[in-house]
């Protein structure tokens, strides 16, 4: 049993040794050396800005499969920082693309850099985009359900109807009062007449 394990370990070592030259081949292949950022020069808040970063080797060949980080330097609540906008991986043409919808106005300094610890280091590329203030509220949440035709007037009509009945009853009292007065007056007159007769 033990022997089998040792044999397997040996095989594993051999396999690793065999693989060594392969990784060496990768190391020899062209490394990303150049980063270019293309961004529109201006826009306004809420626009969809297309950011593109081209990664190429020292010889100018496009580099696929490299992760690019896009950032913008900003100041918010008296804190200044470089904010990550997003990441994208380069395609066969060596282009990493993302769409950025700016929510802040001003001269935004957008930069692109390679993700991770890349050796040798690749200089990040940056570009300034002038963003104009937009008119519309970007974040809005609709609360509540609006049923057409239904509103406080309905409550007012119901309440008004009930109170109308109350007032009507009071008006009826007035009539009862008048009826009573009338009949009393009649009785008085008839009594007077009787007396005269």
């Amino acid at each position: 049993m033990k022997g089998t394990i040792y044999r397997m370990l040996l095989l594993l070592c051999l396999a690793l040794l065999a693989a060594w030259p392969v990784s060496a081949v990768f190391a020899d292949s062209p490394a990303p050396a150049k980063l270019d950022l293309t961004a529109p020069s201006s826009g306004s808040v809420g626009d969809r800005l297309s950011l593109k970063a081209l990664v190429s080797s020292a010889t100018g060949e496009p580099m696929p499969g490299v992760v690019v980080v896009f950032k913008v330097s900003t100041s918010f609540m008296n804190t200044e920082d470089s904010v990550e906008l997003g990441r994208a991986t380069t395609d066969k043409q060596g282009v990493a693309a993302m769409t950025y919808v700016p929510h802040s106005s001003g001269d935004l300094s957008i930069s692109a850099s390679l993700s991770g610890d890349v050796k040798p280091a690749v200089k990040s590329a940056s570009s300034v985009v002038k963003i104009l203030e937009g008119p519309q509220q970007y974040d809005s949440e609709q609360i509540g359900v609006s049923v057409p035709g239904l509103g406080p007037w309905f409550l007012a009509v119901v309440m008004g109807g009930i109170w109308f009945v109350f007032l009507w009853a009071m008006a009826q009292l007035r009539q009862i009062f008048r009826d009573g007065q009338h009949s009393a007056a009649q009785k008085r007159t008839s009594r007077l007449e009787n007396r005269h007769v």
């Binding site: 009539q175 009062f177 009949s183």
Partner: peptide, 15 residues
Amino acid sequence: VEWRGTHSQHHRLAR
């Protein structure tokens, strides 16, 4: 309210 129990008063109150 001058209730005299007349017919019209009864009728009105009942209604």
